[in-house]
Design a protein around this nucleic acid. Structure first.
Lengths: 359, 359
DNA sequence: TCGCCTTCGTAGATCGCTCTACACACCTTC
DNA sequence: GAAGGTGTGTAGAGCGATCTACGAAGGCGA
């Protein structure tokens, strides 16, 4: 047990203390071939006594960093932190460590966060960003194992893991339809976030929403509303829509954070789920809270994190053929959705001005 | 504009392409003294053309990593992610990057996460962990700039930044008292989390709670309930307490996540804020949501992140005397607190068995 | 006893960068 | 014109690990 923890202790010091060569110490800490039990004991004792820790940077010069990097679009969305938790627990017991590169306030800055990880020569990258140039990514993937989450393109060089966004969106719309809703608005993020990538999760959900509406004979009622930016709240946008003369009876939100904003607007106006039902996506922790009780589509971030780590470790172990996994989402029915009133879409008592609505 | 992004491009390649020495290139990228405009242009062109990125690991061998590391007890608590956001935006425009070391599932594993950062030779560490051996910390701080958040001990080697937990807890209790509550329970985390450190934030809040209760002449009513572990839900514990023959009329929870658990229990039993009021701590995003509307103590995680980064950059720039900053918390009154009913603490209609309660 | 194989340990090059020390050219200034 | 700046660039050591190549010692069969 580290009696002294001085951070300028090097492998050299350990070697001297144990009376062996640097190479011998290196062998012991790497668990490499050609070490007698006697030497192993001796060296390990010296390591403990000196409180020696190998420098990751020095290791990186020749060998591995034993580090996996994870990149997420924003740390504020609890769904992403679930992925991190899943990944972290999957690494438990391995010699690998996780580091997270947060995107700064300017999420649009392209590959910045992944670059940070690449610069640190992590042994593998787990990324959720869809806003990354595919070519750049392919190139990076040639040198570093990468698993992209939520990217529905089948790369040759990196693995992907997605939930079935098409199916998830269908579930959401059908659920509302089955309850009796017909005027269902889809609220989603600014496409800039996904760099207008047609295979991004939100783009797919929006497309599936439209298609499902059409299948249900509601093509003319389909309406997709985009947020202009993350900060521009879902609440305000929803308020605008809810104040229109004929308001929709249901919202399908692109993710739970948006759904929470809609719920706020609904609460602001004193409306109930029978007036306006709301479905989210991701099934984050807070959705299950009785005070919120948001119907949502679960895509198990935790499991995604675990699977991703497994894929990365396989790659590091030598796999070269790409793997593309899909997991099936699940509808979690809660009290934010309910059958609509008979007189749905009723006009407000007094005529009022149209509030400006985002396009 | 990186035409080609091959990740085995080194400074040597750039030097060759630009027709200068490695040292010259190094000077340009470090913005060091002794570079003519002409050479700077030439080298920068070569860097762009080759898509060169300096390896952080190689840099770390001699110079700096331009990386700050942040360690948090758990990524699931949104208060901590606020700190991260604050820190990230404070680093905007500097050459420093942030990496996060998440604690694995076993949070009790002592200094593990900070160690991960130290192993990577970050230039500065921002840590929230109270569960770290002070000696070990002092020793690490001798070599690396460190700012500890929420640690009320005045170290010689590292800086600290805390909110005034004593004042915050007092505000919470007084607020409930002013509304008319007398039976106020304090629900807090397992002290193991803070390694029973008497200067940890939760220990201080608990002590301040007791003291404030005493000041208000309620010493005999003071009751502190500890959670056994994080997973062992606040909801169950609160349910147990609320089912006692004479139930308290108010809870002061150690942090918002606990408060949410209590609110769940309150909702489970169909009680209102007039039956049981709840105050949290941290004022996380969700507390402000109208459906939750949790009265809480705000300690501005964002600002804490910003201040911490400033302190670290000062240290890196050469400051050696320790700084210990305190920020003042603020009460955010919402609808989870209300004056109690007249017949407060009334017995349930039928006598029932005491449910087991955690100690 | 010799030669060969196996096991254990070491020497030393190497990774990509930083940074000190120094060389060189050109300008002043006396 | 010599001495002393000043401004620009290069050479080369060094950071702390890893890892290949090789040497030494011991075991074993012929």
């Amino acid at each position: 047990m580290a009696i002294q923890v001085n951070h300028s202790i090097t492998i050299e010091d350990v070697a001297r203390a144990a009376g062996v060569s640097r190479a011998a110490v290196s062998k012991v800490i790497r668990d490499a071939y050609g070490v007698s039990d006697e030497m192993k004991t001796k060296v390990e004792a010296a390591i403990d006594e000196l409180g020696y820790r190998p420098r990751v940077s020095a290791r990186a010069m020749r060998g591995a960093t034993y580090t996996l990097g994870i990149e997420i679009p924003t740390i504020k969305n609890p769904f992403f932190t679930k992925i991190i938790s899943g990944a972290a627990s999957a690494l438990e017991g391995t010699r690998y460590q996780l580091i997270i590169a947060p995107m700064g306030p300017h999420h649009d800055r392209g590959p910045q966060a992944i670059q940070v990880l690449a610069d640190r020569q992590v042994d593998g990258i787990l990324a959720v960003s869809t806003a990354v140039d595919p070519e750049w990514l392919e190139d990076l993937a040639r040198h570093t194992p990468i698993v992209m989450l939520g990217r529905h393109d089948d790369s040759q060089h990196y693995d992907t893991l997605v939930n079935d966004d098409v199916e998830g969106a269908r579930m959401a719309v059908r659920h509302l339809y089955d309850l009796g809703h017909r005027d269902i608005v889809h609220l989603t993020i600014d496409p800039v976030w996904e760099k207008h990538l047609p295979t991004g999760p939100h783009a797919l959900r929006a497309r599936s929403y439209r298609q499902t509406m059409a299948e249900l004979g509601l093509a003319d009622k389909a309406r997709v509303v985009f947020l202009k930016s993350e900060e521009d709240g879902a609440r305000e946008v929803a308020l605008g829509i809810l104040r229109e003369p004929v308001r929709p009876t249901a919202f399908f939100a692109g993710h739970d954070e948006l759904a929470l904003g809609v719920l706020t607007a609904v609460a602001d106006l004193g409306l109930t789920p029978s007036d306006v039902s709301v479905v989210g996506y991701d099934d984050t922790e807070i959705a299950a809270h009785p005070l919120v009780s948001l119907t949502s589509i679960n895509q198990s971030g935790t499991r995604m994190g675990e699977i991703t780590v497994r894929l990365l470790l396989e790659r590091i172990a030598g796999r070269t053929e790409p793997v593309h996994e899909v997991i099936t989402p699940k509808l979690m029915t809660r009290t934010s959705t309910a059958p609509p009133h008979e007189g749905r879409g009723r006009k407000p008592q007094a005529p009022r001005l149209l509030t400006p609505q985002p396009k």
